[in-house]
Write a protein that binds this DNA or RNA. Structure first.
Lengths: 210, 210
DNA sequence: TCCGGTAGGTGACGAAGGTCACAATAAGCA
DNA sequence: TGCTTATTGTGACCTTCGTCACCTACCGGA
């Protein structure tokens, strides 16, 4: 795993802020598939992604998990900001999809820096903005689109984020993330294969043309 | 319409900021059912609600409108902040449901105040937070719940926001806002009436017990 | 090589919800 | 009062999607 430094990942931050992050932030590591946070958990810190890759899910009471968006190195979890600040339970679940390192910023620093560093308050706002857009786009899909379009969008996102046409995943997992069922996903994938959009393998999907 | 002053609506703002808003903001009035912003429009300002009531919708390409949440006096449109700052087209539509007055803050002031007034940057972040939560709850409903639950939630929200058990609306409009069809809504409402949850009238619904 | 486990394929069926056609009311107005 | 229009009610039918049952293909280890 390549080590990325704070200055590299957050070049817009003031030198002083970068130093504070390095000194006061607590680095935590997660293995692939490990959960960074669980639904119902309380937050006492917000987290910046250093390296790896994280997926953010919404869960309902029955444990269904619904994939919302990816978090990449250099990004922060907007939800952890919301929850930390409001002393509320987390309403989402975050899972590492690669081995991942994050740096945790305690709540009191987060607040303090808001007044102290312009680049920090700008970063926080930009983070909200970006996630806001993602959520809107998610709403679009589930409100207006059918499962076929949503599946295609899901694969496209995966392809772009992982920068590969070879997706290692099984149908059941996709079904979980789209809050659907394995059979439905299998059928739709088969149809897409017939249209020449992709090729199906065991435990893997090869994207041809979406 | 009662006139609410800036200090009354935004008591947390510094005196100086309140004065700037009064001096530099541009007050605009909208009649009931008038659109405050349309999908595809560019923003050059953000808007604070002074009085009245605003509904925020997401629209798709075919003109279907999907109700997301209410904005009340003292609140701001988070989306207008996003869009204004990113020079992006609006992805949402806002409609006055009562006669409404807003005060428009030009983009450059919005940015300037971020550094100048702590209460302003706090306000902006709180606004994002609140809308973020609304969106998450919206996603929950459309991802995990059936139309029956969503209809009930919709009526509950209306009841709470308007502080009345007498809702003046027809079935077609509800269907539009939930991205469903009139017949489905009529059937579900009828069922709810049979359960004693409400009473149906022409152009109106009387809520008994939700 | 055999066997068990996992992944994927398929048909049958049902529920939810969208669509169409048309009937029944009620409100408004000439 | 009678006509017109907007609103609501209803049955038939279709599509999408979830579920169940069961089958097939493949992989990996004993």
């Amino acid at each position: 795993m390549e080590i990325s430094t704070i200055p590299q990942l957050f070049p817009a931050f003031e030198k002083e802020l970068q130093r504070e992050i390095e000194e006061q932030g607590e680095i935590r590591s997660f293995k692939t598939d490990e959960q960074l946070m669980r639904t119902g958990q309380y937050f006492r810190s917000t987290m910046l992604i250093l390296n790896g890759l994280v997926k953010i899910y919404r869960e309902d009471d029955d444990g269904n998990e619904f994939f919302m968006y990816y978090l990449q190195p250099g990004q922060a979890c907007a939800l952890s900001m919301v929850c930390a600040a409001e002393h509320k339970r987390s309403a989402i679940m975050a899972k590492a999809v690669k081995d991942t390192e994050i740096i945790a910023i305690p709540l009191h620093l987060m607040e303090e820096w808001m007044g102290k560093y312009r680049s920090w308050s700008y970063f926080v706002i930009t983070t909200y903005r970006a996630r806001f857009e993602e959520l809107l786009s998610t709403i679009d899909h589930i409100a207006f689109r059918g499962m076929d379009e949503r599946l295609e969008f899901y694969l496209k996102k995966h392809q772009e984020t992982m920068r590969t046409n070879h997706i290692t995943i099984n149908h059941q997992e996709i079904a979980n993330e789209l809050n659907s069922s394995r059979e439905v996903i299998s059928r739709l994938l088969k149809k897409m294969e017939q249209f020449g959009k992709l090729k199906l393998h065991r435990n893997a999907i090869e994207i041809i043309q979406l």
